[in-house]
Simulated scan of single mutants.
Amino acid sequence: MMLHDVSWPNDEDLRRGLVTWLDTLPGASWLTVPGQDSNRHRVVVTLLHGNEPSGVKALWHFVQNPPECAVTTHFCLANVKAARYDKPFTTRHFDDKPDMNRCFGKTGEDDSYGVAAEIMARITDLKPEAVVDLHNTSGSSPSFSVSIVDDEKHQQIASLFTERMLCTSVRLGALMEQTTDQSPIVTVECGGAADHAAHEVAQNGLHHFLTAENIFVNHGDFRPLDLLYHPVRVQLKKGLELCYHDRKVDDADLTLPLDIDRHNFGCMAADSMIGWLGEKGLDAMITNDGGGGHPIYALFYEHDGELRLKHASKLFMITTKHHIALSDCLFYMVVD
C-alpha cells in the first residue's frame, strides 16, 4: 500500500504545528472524519503538488476548529514527501519523479502512478457525492475552478469556492479527468501559493463543502459563475531557451516580462505585446486545446521581434517560475 490511513491530528500535534505533523506522516496519507450522515461521503484531495499549500493549511485550520461535517469526509494528502522536502512547500515534485497530477488514468513504474491508482480506488469504492482537488497557481492569480464537464453538479461544487470555472478539453492525466456523474470531481485553483487570499478561498470554500447538508441545492453559499470554454495550453517547445526580463534577451527563444503574471485573468486587447521572440519566431511555441484547434499562428503574430496577440484574450495560470513554465506550460488562454 502506498496510501496510508492516518489518525486525525491530536493536541500534541497541534502544539507542534503543521510542518512538524507532516514530518510524522508515512507518505501519501488518508484521513477520515465521521459526519452526521455516515452513509454519504465527500473527498478532499490536496498536495498533489508539494508546493501548493492552501488546501493543507485549510485542513489545519479545521483541525484547530473542528467543523460539524454533514457527511463522512475524507482528506487525501498526496505528495507529502515533496511538500516537506527542504524548505516546506517549495517542491512541486522531485526531479526524478513524474508530476503526480499527470498520473491519473495512466500506468507507469514510478510510485506516483501507484498513489494515483490507490486514490482512485478509494474514490471508486466510496462513491463520494463530490470530490474537490485543491491547488495553487504557480503565479499570483485570482481563484478559479477547472472541470472537463459543464453541468449543474460540477458548477455547484465549483461555486462553493470561486466565481470562475474553466471547461476544458485538454487531457493531461489530472485527477479531475476521472470525474463521473455519480462522483463529480472538480479542481479548484485557490490562487497563488504565496497569496493570503488563496488560503482564505480554500478555508471558506471547504467550510461550505464540509458543512452543507446538501451541496447540490441553491443556497447562500453559491457564487454566480463566470464560465470560460476551451482554454488553450501554450508551451515552449522542449529544449528551447526561456528568459524572464524587462527587455529582449538575444540568446533566448522566448523572453517574457518579469511581471507577466499581473495579466492573470485580465482582459488583454488584440495586438497586446506578450513578450519577445528569438530566431525561431512563433515556431518556438506549441498549443494544445484538446481538440487539435487553435494553432499557434491563429492566436499570435510576430511584429518586429515582439510576440503579440491576434485577438482579445484572457490569459491565466501564467507563471514566472522558470522550471514550471518549461516543465508544465507558459500559460493558458481563452480567446474572447
Rank of each mutant, 00 (worst) to 15 (best):
N10A: 11
N10K: 09
G17I: 07
T20S: 13
D23W: 02
L25F: 09
V33Q: 12
S54Y: 04
G55L: 09
V56W: 06
L59M: 12
W60F: 10
P67G: 03
A82F: 10
A83G: 13
M100E: 13
N101G: 04
F104I: 09
G108M: 01
S112N: 10
V115G: 04
V115C: 03
I119T: 07
A130F: 04
H135N: 04
T137F: 08
S138Y: 01
F144W: 13
I148G: 10
D151Y: 12
E152S: 14
E152M: 12
S159Q: 11
F161W: 03
V170A: 03
L175M: 11
Q178C: 07
D181C: 05
G220I: 04
R223E: 03
L227F: 06
L228A: 14
L228N: 06
R233G: 07
V234D: 01
Q235D: 15
T255L: 00
T255G: 08
T255A: 01
D261H: 09
D261K: 01
R262F: 08
F265L: 11
M273S: 13
I274V: 15
L282G: 05
T287D: 02
T287A: 04
N288C: 13
D289R: 11
L299G: 02
R308C: 14
L309Y: 06
S313F: 00
S327D: 10
S327Y: 04
